[in-house]
């Protein structure tokens, strides 16, 4: 089985976010960027499936600016076998909406024919929590969201999901889209030798146009503002 893992380049979770004075967005120039933490968990899970003999190949995909190459190299250093970068924007401040990302990922799935897609449950920049569910809808596949436990057994997978009341376990038909939650695993760090090896792993570059997907946003950003300040604490 081939596993596809979409990974997003986002502002590092330790960085204090600053809203631009003109209200046009968040300042992303010269700030530390990293792989979305949930996507690290997804990559880790894919590697564990491979180590358990349940997956043969792990393909990491990122949709965004050229710099997302770095994010893909991180996935390769962790243990992904190859990577696909879909360049869909040239300004680091342009983010691609989940619907467009899902449409591109659907085309990648068509070309790569994975048996499983492991996504993060949400990206920590826009907090939409949408891409995996949208991809699953576009493909007509089953979905298992917010997974804290996953076991893949032939034609189905059993997924334990973190939901409002506690935990829910469901069985989904393969192929499936699984979105991962924090408690699924603890991602490994890439070792130095693996970081060196990752530089030689294949990284294909495509564009949104190659897949014929229109990435024009459906949501116009009217403004971005600082949240209302709390009345002074102590």
């Amino acid at each position: 089985m081939k596993v596809l893992v979409p990974v997003k380049r986002v502002i590092d979770y330790n960085v204090k976010v600053r809203v631009k004075a003109d209200g046009s967005g968040v300042d992303l120039a010269n700030v530390k960027m990293s792989m979305n933490p949930f996507d690290e968990i997804a990559v880790e899970e894919a590697i564990r499936l491979k180590e358990a003999g349940k997956a043969e190949e792990i393909v990491a995909v990122s949709v965004g600016v050229k710099q997302a190459q770095e994010t893909l190299r991180t996935a390769l250093a962790m243990g992904a076998d190859r990577a696909i970068l879909v360049v869909a924007a040239d300004d680091v401040h342009t983010d691609i909406e989940p619907l467009a990302v899902a449409k591109i990922l659907a085309k990648v799935v068509e070309a790569e024919q994975p048996g499983l897609v492991l996504c993060g449950k949400q990206a920590i920049d826009n907090d939409m929590n949408a891409t995996g569910q949208m991809l699953s809808a576009l493909l007509g596949w089953s979905q298992g969201t917010f997974a804290s436990e996953l076991s893949v057994d032939g034609d189905h997978a059993t997924v334990t999901r973190e939901v409002d009341g506690g935990l829910q376990t469901i069985k989904v038909k393969m192929p499936a889209i699984i979105t991962v939650d924090l408690r699924l695993n603890e991602p490994r760090y890439a070792s130095l030798p693996n970081i060196m090896k990752a530089k030689k792993k294949p990284l294909d570059e495509k564009t949104a146009a190659d897949y014929g997907v229109d990435v024009a946003p459906r949501l116009e950003i009217v403004k971005t503002a600082e949240p209302a300040a709390r009345a002074a604490g102590i």
Partner: peptide, 20 residues
């Protein structure tokens, strides 16, 4: 969590963005 599971799927089937 139930709605976050369902609504993006609804949106994609209708070919519209979801506002979460």
């Amino acid at each position: 969590t139930d709605a976050k599971n369902v609504m993006p799927r609804v949106a994609a089937l209708l070919d519209v963005m979801v506002i979460s």
